[in-house]
Design a protein around this nucleic acid. Structure first.
Lengths: 318, 318
DNA sequence: TTGTATGCGTTATCAA
DNA sequence: TTGATAACGCATACAA
């Protein structure tokens, strides 16, 4: 409600004087911060980093800044962390996963702040965005079944601490049962997601001469480490054992690739969460694509069951 | 200045009522936000993610939250991004790299906000934390020289856009000259940091039958891709060609490893920057460890010059 | 120890 | 259009 020329003049002057608006005052008065809080376990060297990046990117385009906290499962008092973020002043919050303390939900509710759970399965009345982890597990197994594999091993995340690892594992187990396959005793290893962990787990499987024709890895960190262990042990993939994995990231694709990969829409989670929150804050009551599509990618499929498996049927178990 | 029991009582009541302090008002009044702004190119799937994570972790421990912006070199108006972060209210700022627009420095100065440049070489009067990129380059080359290599290739980041890639490349080039080695014509490839990019570059080198015994990769994304290309082409590493790299991340360590790796203190940059800012904000005038130590790591060194190089001296150039 | 007033820099409202 | 003024919620200083 001011002349365009005047407007220009003022803005220019402000810029020259190095004027920077005081967001605290603005927030205090307008009750809007244009900031979104994000709480994720970590964003360095993990599957979450791509998601967080996508979230930030989409939010930035809509004019929002991201206040990020990555407790890395340490002093796991998530509620305290959330409180600090809320104190700091955010218009909305994005959390990771569906499993949160009641106090966290209570804080969210009492504060009346819009929020979204990322990488979470659908929950009644809670805005979630994720994908079907169990179906992801099933897709991998079904492909292996189609190739003729019967006896599988599994290296995955810790199911007791990690809902995603748990669901993924469940999907694998269920599919194995459906197809009359065997998840071999002692060849199911739970560990932290990491290169070294995948390496050590696979080395253990190889060292024990487990009687499996394929090993399913819970994510591509593990798969990458597993491939390295095979290489070290002189075990040919996939001639002697197949490795299947879930492609949270991209790096596994440029190595000696796993036989089967399910590409998981990790980045899409971030983008989708951002879109939801932005619309939500603009007054709309948007829907949320709780189940993002997932996709089976078969790279360099080199045939069915290994011709010379790493151990015979009488092989020891670890 | 209140009785402990009363204090407890009040705090408990506040918690029960779901009271969350209003940071905007607090900030407006106290002029302190306990928030640090960070501007880095990206934090998803890149060398920066570990650094950003370390920064966040160290800051969180000191009671600070991180406001992060990752423009990903897009609408590269860094000054605008910085302005938005300053508007939002931060006690200090951490930027990446030493190359910034004058307007950025002007904004920093006029706003009188403490700041630190991460992953930056020492600049007069500017708080920087980083390491000697050129020495990193030199270390790799010197190791290759000691092994008897004479003719090298290089796959690196874009030197025109990336000061770090530029310095690293300079270090390599200078060391090559010092040791009377040759950086072979047409086997110097600049590309984006990425798996695919490394793969494609190495494939190009192999396809051209370049006359080199070792290829230096600018980071481990490139190296990982390069190793995949060698594998695909049936070229044995390091029997036919050596791959050397800089270990920004960790994943290269659990693959068929490069001959030589310089571990770069990326995470330490984040930690160090955080420590500096926290001390600085507590009123101290701390020193900054501008040059973090770097370390040569030789993994599975399998001997000197390849016995059957990928091309003879009369090999074509790309 | 406790209460009370003032100011922080904006936005929003209302009157001119 | 423009100016003046009252919140916004907390911290600080000062008085009781």
């Amino acid at each position: 409600m001011v002349q365009e020329t005047t407007r220009e003049r003022i803005l220019k002057a402000a810029r020259q004087l190095g004027y920077v608006a005081n967001g605290a005052a603005r927030a205090l008065s307008s009750r809007v911060t244009h900031t979104i809080g994000a709480v994720i376990p970590r964003f360095g060297n993990s599957s979450f980093s791509g998601m967080a990046q996508a979230l930030e990117q989409a939010l930035a385009q809509a004019g929002f800044t991201v206040l990020i906290a990555a407790p890395d499962y340490r002093q796991s008092n998530e509620t305290e962390i959330l409180r600090r973020i809320l104190e700091r002043g955010v218009d909305a919050v994005a959390l990771l996963g569906a499993v949160h303390a009641p106090t966290t939900y209570a804080l969210l509710a009492s504060h009346r702040v819009p929020y979204v759970l990322m990488w979470a399965q659908a929950i009644e009345g809670v805005p979630c965005v994720g994908f079907d982890e169990r179906m992801a597990g099933a897709l991998v197994v079904e492909h292996l079944a189609a190739l003729g594999h019967r006896r599988l091993g599994f290296i995955g995340g810790r199911t007791s601490e990690n809902e995603r690892a748990r669901l993924r594992y469940q999907g694998v187990v269920e599919a194995i049962a459906r197809h009359g396959m065997t998840l071999c005793d002692g060849v199911v290893i739970e560990t932290d997601y990491g290169f070294r962990e995948g390496h050590d787990a696979m080395a253990q499987i190889l060292g024990a001469g487990a009687n499996v024709t394929a090993v399913v890895c819970g994510n591509d960190y593990l798969a990458t480490g597993a491939l390295a262990a095979c290489d070290e042990a002189g075990v040919d993939v996939p001639q002697q054992v197949s490795i299947a994995s879930f492609n949270d990231n991209d790096f596994a694709a440029y190595l000696k690739p796993p036989l089967t990969t399910v590409r998981l829409p990790i980045r899409e989670i971030g983008t989708s969460a951002a879109t939801y929150l932005v619309e939500r804050l603009s007054g709309a009551n948007p829907e949320l694509h709780t189940q993002l599509p997932i996709e089976l990618i078969v790279r360099r499929s080199t045939g069915p069951v290994p011709s010379s498996p790493i151990a015979r049927a009488d092989g020891q178990r670890s």
